[in-house]
Design a binder for these strands. Structure first.
Lengths: 211, 211
DNA sequence: AACAATTCTTCAAACGACTGTTTGAAAAGC
DNA sequence: GCTTTTCAAACAGTCGTTTGAAGAATTGTT
């Protein structure tokens, strides 16, 4: 697992992407200046144009990095469920996995922040995130939800219920500041995350039992 | 209901706030230039400094306008519920009211967009929105939820459940683009909104019945 | 192994365009 | 005649990008 010694140019590339993820997510695309990014990466402004062609090119490179992380974290699908109880278990494990990615430290916080900002700005990474994370996860959960409830997989009811489910998870990340303030939590630690997952799991069980 | 004829200076003020709400919500604070805002308001750039002192002053004025709209839409609390079934009904009506505000055309879309962006950027309007909308609504729903379930009002379980509930609503707005794409909806019309409310209502009923 | 030729990478400096803000004069309202 | 409001123009500063030279790394030839 020892990382091969990167050529110095690759170090600069990686540092620029890391700085881009951080500052884009903190200040937005327009708010993060190339000089600030280069400064955080401890290199010259011109390096951005050299390595990525332009600021927009760096944005795309950041998006690809995030897409790569998403692929690692939520890519592999589980086995096809054969019955409602298996489907129920699969829903919970998918939820836990996505929660770990969105709320925990599976992925660098800057990467999640960048992703959410691109989604809300409709930036070029939005399509990538949609295609690689949202759409597949949603589709898979729809299948599981349909098996667990007996409803039709492509019915509006199922698709909306799954959105409501995923929405809770996204919200706990998007509104982290608000939640932490109201809950008087200093951070999302493992304990807090499992409390959130418990809450969501309770909701799922009720929904599956009742509907 | 006829609006008193505004002095011309008030028209400029209002036009600048409207343009600010629109462009801040579309491009973010940093991305919206004073010239673009003045152009959309069909006035001169210097008007911003004249009426609001600075660009930041316009941002604050926009925040106050949004706070005013929120106060109108979700301000008045209903009567104190005396039993679980009344609490249940009150939860649903609160949900419907907030849904109308967040998803429908009760408030100008630009105002909602501005609000969400300020929340995610942690801008100066974030505290205002939190204090006037999130905190009171959350607190009220916690009371109702506690009455409906018999749980303690200030328990973590109740507060998290209410966050999960509100989160679904916020998410359907934040991720409108994504939802519309996956649902193949062209817009959030009255029909679509009531389908969303139905989904959330079903979830609430299950949760209250099961938990 | 040693040296020169060549490519790849970094850098300070400068480019024009655009940023938020200020100015003083013209226009409008009273 | 006076105050309030608008406007074109200019301000200093920052923006993303380009430039050409200097530095570092690699290659090819001895």
């Amino acid at each position: 697992m020892s990382k091969p010694p990167l050529p110095h140019s690759e170090k600069t590339r990686a540092a620029l992407i890391a700085a881009g993820l951080h500052l884009f997510s903190q200040l937005g695309y327009a708010g993060a200046s190339t000089r600030a990014i280069a400064g955080r990466a401890e290199t010259n402004v011109a390096s951005i144009a050299y390595h990525f062609g332009s600021k927009e090119g760096l944005r795309t490179a950041c998006a690809e990095e995030v897409a790569r992380l998403i692929g690692e974290a939520v890519g592999q699908a589980g086995p096809q469920p054969v019955g409602p109880s298996q489907a129920r278990a699969a829903i919970k494990s998918t939820l836990t996995r996505v929660a770990g990615f969105l709320l925990g430290d599976v992925a660098p916080p800057d990467a999640i922040g960048f992703m959410l900002r691109e989604l809300s700005e409709g930036g070029p990474a939005a399509d990538l995130v949609y295609a690689r994370m949202i759409e597949p996860t949603h589709q898979r959960l729809c299948v599981l939800w349909a098996v667990a409830t007996g409803l039709a997989e492509e019915s509006e009811q199922v698709r909306l219920a799954v959105f409501a489910l995923m929405g809770q998870l996204f919200y706990f990340r998007i509104a982290e500041r608000i939640v932490r303030r109201r809950m008087r939590w200093q951070a999302y630690g493992p304990g807090e995350i499992s409390k959130i997952i418990d809450t969501l799991t309770r909701g799922i069980e009720s929904a599956l039992a009742g509907g």
